[in-house]
């Protein structure tokens, strides 16, 4: 893969920068140029907004048959995570045994290597998720 393709997504993948609609306040990730609720009214009012990185596992799977860049990493856990800001993200959940994953698990984003483009290619970084370390005050 050409490097610019991933380089241009760095703010989102490294720092979870999404978009907030200035009209209705809803937060989106990945960033959007138009709010699907406000549509025309949102144009020119979509602002960058970094997510806090915390969320809850809504569903999960354990991948045993990986795609080319992920060979040798299986089994790994992928989850659909509802972020506290209300949007959903897809990502790997790491640093836990496969049997520990469950719907409702609280997780937080961490910065990790995603894959390497061969031995000489660029290393792709981005977010994965891990169990939330500190107990939360309700």
């Amino acid at each position: 893969m050409a490097v610019p393709r991933y380089w241009r997504e760095i703010p989102q993948r490294y720092n979870l920068v999404g978009t907030k609609c200035g009209s209705c306040g809803k937060i989106y990730f990945p960033p959007k140029v138009v709010c699907p609720t406000c549509r025309r009214k949102s144009l020119g009012h979509m602002e960058d907004c970094a997510l806090a990185g915390r969320g809850t596992v809504e569903s999960y799977t354990i991948i045993y048959a990986p795609p080319p860049h992920f060979e040798g990493e299986e089994p790994y856990t992928m989850a659909l995570i509802k972020m506290d800001e209300g949007c959903y993200l897809m990502g790997q959940v790491v640093d836990l045994e496969p049997q520990e994953i469950h719907i409702g698990l609280r997780v937080e984003a961490c910065f990790r290597r995603i894959y390497e483009d061969g031995t000489r290619g660029a290393i792709q970084y981005g977010y994965k998720f891990k169990k939330m370390e500190e107990a939360e005050t309700p």
Binding site: A65, P66, F70, A79, Q92
Partner: peptide, 18 residues
């Protein structure tokens, strides 16, 4: 989705688990 390691069976698996 695919960038982070999601496969096509993986997406349907997420729906199945849900």
């Amino acid at each position: 989705e695919a960038f982070f390691g999601a496969t096509f069976p993986g997406l349907y698996a997420l729906m199945a688990r849900y």
